[in-house]
Design a protein around this nucleic acid. Structure first.
Length: 394
DNA sequence: AATAAAATAT
DNA sequence: CATATTTTAT
């Protein structure tokens, strides 16, 4: 009590502009009083949101601004939520924090014990876009390019990098699934290039292909579980994977949300799905192990899906700003789950901010600003909300 | 059994 | 590189 800096006294209308988000967070983190903390954060967030609304109209011209703002907002909200939840707060706070989400959707990630029935969250699907404006306050994944909250207090987001890429690949019915290591003894054929480590994205780790063995299982089909790298049980070390099956079919590559994100990003940078070419995309994505064909295939599908947007006959009241940042085309099938995708503008390790993000997966942001446009359809299945045909024009 | 997604063939 | 076709996974 007494040691509040003058600035802090401006609870609600702080002139937060002069400072950077990082600084702001640092300041806030030093505040002992939770209420103050919350109000500060809240105020800041509100300011950012206002800003967001203002530039919303120019989102196309200022995609980066949107991204940055969005990122900051998300990050701050995270912080806010943490404050709130960590204290479980008293009544007093409740007055301040009626924020948008009061324990409604997902704020798990950390919640131990209760594995909670995620299944019951069927509504989530709807939520993923509709109720949440665009800065959906997701909990995890707070990798922001600009702010390094990490040093602040967020320890929760940490193991995202790799996981993000793979995440979402598992079967969606995984509820409590943990596939035993049944998978396959894999021999990872590293035939591909292995030189693109770059940031440690080791996405492509296709399982392995194992034709017969699993064909009967009707339950746990782990399509792609990232690493089941067991030292080949088979003593065939040197022996390639020689199932006499010529043309051994590659194991299906699972396009995790992150992977897809990168894909979309690349696309954007290349001027749209139409202009982009597989090779280019692949290069841009910088995902090791990813092959041209894979990208090509994905692109093909993407193009197919982005072609012609179903008339959103939805009489959707377009009142919400609905920016639909994450318009990954995916629905809930494969990529969808993580749903927080959004993209960052540059490649993750690219030129822009991501400079030193160690754990930086690309964060969420809007990636298809160009495409979405009126994609505001709150979409249900992806046919509905896929990103529009890219108007190539970067 | 149907369909989407990825692999492969053209 | 683009498309078409086939295979595979849910």
């Amino acid at each position: 009590m007494g040691s509040v800096s003058p600035e802090l006294s401006l609870d609600f209308r702080p002139t937060f502009l002069p400072r950077t988000v990082t600084d702001f967070l640092r300041e806030v983190s030093m505040i002992g009083n939770v209420s103050d903390k919350v109000s500060k954060l809240d105020a800041f967030v509100k300011g950012l949101e206002e800003e967001m609304k203002k530039i919303d109209a120019f989102k196309r011209e200022l995609p980066l601004c949107m991204l940055l703002l969005n990122d900051a907002i998300v990050a701050l909200k995270e912080e806010l939520m943490q404050c709130i939840s960590s204290k479980n707060v008293q009544p007093v706070l409740e007055e301040f924090i009626p924020l948008k989400k009061s324990s409604s959707e997902d704020e798990d990630e950390e919640i131990p014990a209760v594995k909670k029935e995620k299944d019951s969250s069927k509504d989530n699907k709807k939520n993923w876009m509709s109720s949440v404006q665009l800065w959906n306050t997701d909990d995890h994944q707070t990798t922001d390019p600009i702010v390094d909250l990490k040093q602040n207090t967020n320890l929760k987001f940490k193991r995202n990098e790799e996981e993000n890429l793979f995440q979402g690949c598992k079967s969606r019915t995984e509820a409590r699934a943990f596939m035993p290591f049944k998978a396959y003894p894999g021999f990872v054929r590293k035939e591909d290039k292995e030189e693109l480590p770059a940031h440690g994205l080791s996405l492509v780790t296709p399982g392995i292909k194992n034709p017969r063995e699993d064909t009967g299982s009707s339950g746990s089909r782990t399509s792609c579980s990232k690493s089941v790298s067991s030292s080949a049980p088979n003593a065939r070390t040197t022996g390639p994977q020689p199932p006499h099956q010529q043309t051994t079919r590659k194991q299906r590559r699972c396009w995790s949300p992150e992977l897809h994100r990168r894909f979309v990003n690349a696309l954007q940078q290349l001027g749209g799905s139409q202009a982009a070419t597989p090779k280019q995309i692949r290069e841009l994505m910088q995902v090791d192990g990813l092959t041209n064909d894979e990208v090509k295939s994905h692109l093909q599908k993407y193009r197919l899906h982005t072609r012609r947007v179903p008339p959103t006959t939805t009489a959707a009241p377009a009142n919400q700003s609905v920016v639909v940042l994450g318009s990954l085309w995916m629905s809930q099938d494969q990529y969808g789950d993580s749903s927080k995708g959004s993209s960052q503008s540059g490649s993750p390790q690219g030129p822009l901010q991501l400079g030193g993000n160690t754990g930086g997966t690309s964060t969420t942001g809007g990636d298809s600003m160009e495409d979405d446009e009126d994609a505001k359809s709150e979409g249900y299945s992806w046919k509905s909300h896929i990103s529009k045909p890219g108007k190539d024009d970067v």
